[in-house]
């Protein structure tokens, strides 16, 4: 149980604190799709020819957590990250808990408390 708690704390610290130190440069995929275009300050292609010009506005751009912020406010990346970690844990953990094999009574050497 202590291990699981520790693992969760590490994930929360990474998403909630270390995320502020993340590089803001485009990742490898975005760097490729933007190759050939001139970009404006917000990273939108404004001239030339590139793959990213075919990209549409995101369907969930109006989400309150869009762009890893809370309501679009600057400096809220860590909060959005913590929410993301918890939502992922609940959804994934819940799914996996529901899918798991129920242990029969005689073969449980170490139960999770």
């Amino acid at each position: 149980m202590a291990f699981y708690a520790g693992f969760l704390v590490v994930a929360l610290l990474l998403a909630g604190v270390v995320s502020y130190a993340a590089s803001s440069s485009p990742d490898g995929l975005d760097a490729v799709t933007q190759t050939g275009c001139e970009l404006d300050e917000s990273g939108e292609p404004v001239g030339g020819t590139c793959i990213a010009q075919n990209a549409g506005e995101h369907a969930t751009a109006a989400s309150p957590l869009a762009d890893y912020t809370v309501g679009g406010s600057e400096g809220t990346t860590g909060i959005a990250g913590v929410i993301g970690v918890l939502v992922t844990l609940i959804l994934a953990g819940g799914l996996f808990w529901a899918l798991r094999r129920r242990s029969s009574k005689d073969e449980t050497p170490s139960r999770v408390e």
Binding site: Y4, F7, L8, V10, A11, L12, L14, A15, V18, S19, A21, A22, S23, S24, S25, D27, G28, Y68, T77, G81, G84, V85, L86, T88, L89, I90, L91, A92, G93, G94, L95, F96, W97, L99, R100, R101, S103, T108, S110, R111, V112
Partner: peptide, 26 residues
């Protein structure tokens, strides 16, 4: 998946979400 590995799998997913936020320069 069993009583021990199901919680671990949920945590691993949450951990991947967290670490995917951490862009590093190449």
């Amino acid at each position: 998946l069993d009583d021990r590995t199901a919680p671990m799998a949920g945590l691993v997913a949450a951990f991947v979400f967290a670490v995917q936020m951490l862009n590093f320069p190449i």
